[in-house]
Design a binder for these strands. Structure first.
Lengths: 236, 236
DNA sequence: GCGACACTTTTGGTATATCAGTTGTACAGT
DNA sequence: ACTGTACAACTGATATACCAAAAGTGTCGC
């Protein structure tokens, strides 16, 4: 599935770990594993919006008991990735246009903030890592990547910026809405013409943050979010 | 505890109900009840930062089993109101200056957004309720209220605005950080000289939203958040 | 014969009890 | 005084029991 060792490493480091969990190597509970596994299936649309979710089946599938799965589903409900109707079952959350608008409204405020804060801090902390990430992405041959791989890089870039912003709460909320946005992204991925452009914006954004250009990072991040919303709306 | 029927009504309507739970009269599970009860104790500092939390004791105290309490604590961990160190216990989250800065940074972006959106929508939807709430608060004799009552009104005002903004996701995240901010507020409440001023800002804010003055609502909300941070910092 | 109501069955949710594993602390021995 | 071992406490996991709701089927009445 993932062959590139650097990609693997970065992905685990930036995406797999639960939000604000300080120690990536810490023993993750069964519930955490279930959470990450199910969340990824939801985001990557292995479980599509509206699909019913059978906790017993998932438990067998992941080789754990029902309790950690139920716990994971509770967390995912908090993330608005699943909804549970009492005595009817749990389902992958449906999606509509207004959700995209609502999420973009929030992200249009917070992504620029994170980019700005990251730029302010990066000059003395994480500029090397961010530059490295930018270079790595620039080298990628986008046309050759499958969508899962592409999404993983998208997630990795955003997580790196959130982390670099140095505000754990901001990181929390941005991860949450980035997951939701990425899910929408996946939903329209095959209809979207300009995916490479989207990735190009990442490189610019990372470079400006690494260079400590807060104003430019702010602008680019905002344009990135707004451009995303426009791109989706164009193909609806 | 709460005598004023209007206050009671509004509080339950705006604060008690779980975020995005559409139907306030819906049957709330024991886990929900435990969540609200424990969250309130945390915010109102009946359980102070750093305090250990004994789930068994809480379960007995609330008259429910351990499971709903544990479920509630899991949710509260997501809200960053408690932290759980595996096999050591769960504790009320500690607080420091940087938390205030981080939270204010987020709220300074999102509270104005919510106020703006609420103002844009209020003219044709909720302006009557918001005006009513403003009048009610204006009539309150702040000096006579105890801190719990004061906090409840503070929460009620903010929740009303979040709801009026018509963006469930925004409501989610703002409730989350309003809880955290209110907890900090409570922590410094006895040292804070200008609580009545804070409430006065609420009236102005509500009125400008009800009048549909989005720009003014935006400004007032931002100033409200920033003023809050300044007020706390002044007494540290 | 058709429709409506009631009962039963199935499914999913909630709560409690139990078990295992881990960590921290205390006490004793060197 | 320091280290090692043992015990206690607590969390995390799972199974089980109980409950509520919904859907389907059968029977009775019109």
């Amino acid at each position: 599935m993932r062959q590139d060792p650097l990609a693997d490493n970065l992905y685990d480091l930036l995406v797999t770990v639960a939000p604000l969990e300080l120690d990536p190597s810490a023993a993750t509970s069964l519930a955490d594993k279930a959470y990450v596994a199910i969340r990824d299936r939801l985001i990557m649309l292995d479980i599509r919006p509206g699909d019913p979710i059978d906790d017993d089946e998932l438990a067998k599938d992941l080789g754990v008991g029902r309790t950690p799965v139920r716990e994971a589903l509770k967390r995912l409900e908090g993330d608005r990735l699943v909804v549970s109707y009492p005595r009817r079952g749990t389902f992958a959350t449906g999606m509509d246009i207004s959700d995209l608008a609502h999420i973009s409204d929030i992200r249009a405020q917070l992504e620029p903030l994170a980019a700005r804060r990251a730029a302010e801090r990066a000059v003395r902390t994480a500029h090397a890592e961010l530059d490295e990430l930018a270079s790595h992405i620039q080298q990628l041959d986008i046309a050759q990547l499958d969508r899962t791989e592409l999404m993983r890089w998208d997630l990795a870039v955003h997580r790196a910026i959130y982390r670099a912003a140095g505000n754990p709460h901001l990181e929390d909320v941005l991860i949450r809405y980035d997951n939701l946005a990425t899910r929408i992204f996946c939903l329209f991925l095959d209809r979207l013409p300009t995916v490479d452009e989207h990735v190009g914006e990442h490189v610019e954004l990372l470079r400006s943050i690494a260079a400590g250009d807060a104003d430019r990072a702010d602008d680019l991040a905002r344009e990135h979010v707004l451009g995303f919303e426009r791109a989706i709306r164009a193909v609806i």
